[in-house]
Design a protein around this nucleic acid. Sequence first.
DNA 1: CGGTCTGATGTGACCGTTCACATGGCGACA
DNA 2: TGTCGCCATGTGAACGGTCACATCAGACCG
Lengths: 359, 359
Amino acid sequence: MDSLACVTVNMPYCCGSEGPVTQEPPRGRAPSIRDVARLAGVSHQTVSRVLNQHPSIRPETKQRVLDVMSELQYKPNRAARALVTSRSHTLGILSASSTQYGPASSIAAIEAAAREAGYWVTTANIESGDAGSIADGLAHLAAQGIEGLVVIAPQVRVFDTLAQLSIDLPYVTLQSTGRDPGHALSVDQIAGARLATRHLIELGHRNIYHLAGPQDWIEAEARMRGFLDEMSAQDVPTTAPILGDWTADFGYYAGRELLTVRDFTAIFASNDQMALGLMHAVRDAGLEIPRDVSIIGFDDIPEAAHFWPPLTTVRQDFAELGRRCVALLLGDLEDDSEQQDGTIVPELLVRGTTGVAAF
Amino acid sequence: MDSLACVTVNMPYCCGSEGPVTQEPPRGRAPSIRDVARLAGVSHQTVSRVLNQHPSIRPETKQRVLDVMSELQYKPNRAARALVTSRSHTLGILSASSTQYGPASSIAAIEAAAREAGYWVTTANIESGDAGSIADGLAHLAAQGIEGLVVIAPQVRVFDTLAQLSIDLPYVTLQSTGRDPGHALSVDQIAGARLATRHLIELGHRNIYHLAGPQDWIEAEARMRGFLDEMSAQDVPTTAPILGDWTADFGYYAGRELLTVRDFTAIFASNDQMALGLMHAVRDAGLEIPRDVSIIGFDDIPEAAHFWPPLTTVRQDFAELGRRCVALLLGDLEDDSEQQDGTIVPELLVRGTTGVAAF
DNA sequence: CGGTCTGATGTGACCGTTCACATGGCGACA
DNA sequence: TGTCGCCATGTGAACGGTCACATCAGACCG
């Protein structure tokens, strides 16, 4: 197991005819459907039929073909198939913040679901949400010939850019706002946010801030709406949410800012990272969590349970989300069936960062 | 900006000829090189030459072709090109733990670098490191026709599986052990681990544990080696490292286990997540960090600075790593130039979890 | 027992590129 | 002034699949 850091055992071009090789395999290229056909004594079309599980093939013929295939290590050529069918069987993901737990989990789940369904996935990560880099990413994906697009990014802008580039694509986002009932998939972000907010209110908090995500992310907007809805449903006066950028760093600086006034007893952060930053700021100010300030996050990243104190948060099932997302897209693409919908219900996890209001 | 959760503005097949459309665009399919050629009054081959920046084309001809292209919104068909050149311009990433910060960052960086170079990237995420799922992922990537493979996973097993499936591919891993000087790219993981270890020793610690990663990950092995090297270089007696799985949960349980005996004053964890779990366990035991126990991590995930106390760790530049990785692979693929090598030096970040040995 | 249907297979074209080679024009050089 | 070579361009054949259609047995039916 030494030094296998870079192995480069190239195959094509080289080859050469050494040893008592039978003449069958053509020189440089991989075996094709016709090579298989020749060896199996059938026509190339019959081989194709085997490949596509055509019903009318005699079992023995089929077997013979299959045997030759495995003997030759035949692998169908994706490009050739894509060329004639004009289907790439590839989905694209446009993702921002893909290093964060949420997006990363979704990507993994999407990839898994797509693979299951026989699709490939290519990603384009954009660092900033600016129009230029969105356009770049989108153009890259479009050039690849994707059949559908999943967006994990500031969706409003992506949508605009899509239109601007006049790219027409089946398009799905991970989140919905809850409207658009027929079509949209939904972790009910709003419900999750209401859960979090209600929890704080039930603990007696009245002065609650919301540290939101960037507003062109649909989930950020939905969580904010959930917060506002619950606050007004419970007749608690609200202050304007603070718009963050999902990072712990931002949470930290926002927290410092907020603490100069300290007119609150609880904060609901729109994701766990920002919550962590807030916790840091609170401690820096010499305050104790949850005695002086309660904090609640959103997502339940795997680290959240190990924060100090362990973070109260709302669990979201990213994996399920990714799966449904692909199902939706594929249902659209192949329209073989109605996708069952139904909402993924997020779950409140009460841990150590929320407590009864100081007063 | 309502309900854009799922927009499905399909294009092909439909079309239809309404309005005063000129007859040029063929019905269902996208414009091809020949459509462009016809409109520009040249042969298809000339269009192809424009596409491939062939030198011998009269500027005016070229311009004419380009004009027609943009007028028709011509996009080259990747499948057709791939078919004839037998180059997919696609790289594959086989990744485990892709929801964690390190792998996720590397993937993003690889994608960016590949895109820069005109390559696409497809990923296959494996959940468990078992042979079956590795084989699945690999087969999937192979069927896609990737030209090169990047592995962010238990590399030993991947390598075996690769051989077993008799897949021959240019192959690069993110880490090297430092041997194999000509070819390998290296964050010097060993140096980083030595840095961390030395830091603890200099603080007076003598009883130091190492919580390592899974040993079939090269980086885990390298960090462990660095730890052992430094310990023996400084004549500090060592205990056998504990083999973990990269997760905070594991760190927590390992910590609890360790603390039943408590024959140490410091722990070097092979990544930040495990360090976080350890911190949790230490606090659970009623001990204080760093007064009673010093902890150091590895990676510098963005949250590390906001842990309590902020985590001392070793920063690793995943992005640079990803870039170099692609450069290496592409250098191999296109062999246009010698890649400059040189080592990425990791950096020690002393924050709040390490202190002078209790004694 | 002829006709029709269906099952199993073959034939040839076609998808949109690039490649190898051919062609014609024009300047340079002997 | 013939010819050599290069430049700009064109022609036709791949590439490896799938699709539409043709073919040829038998089975079934009246």
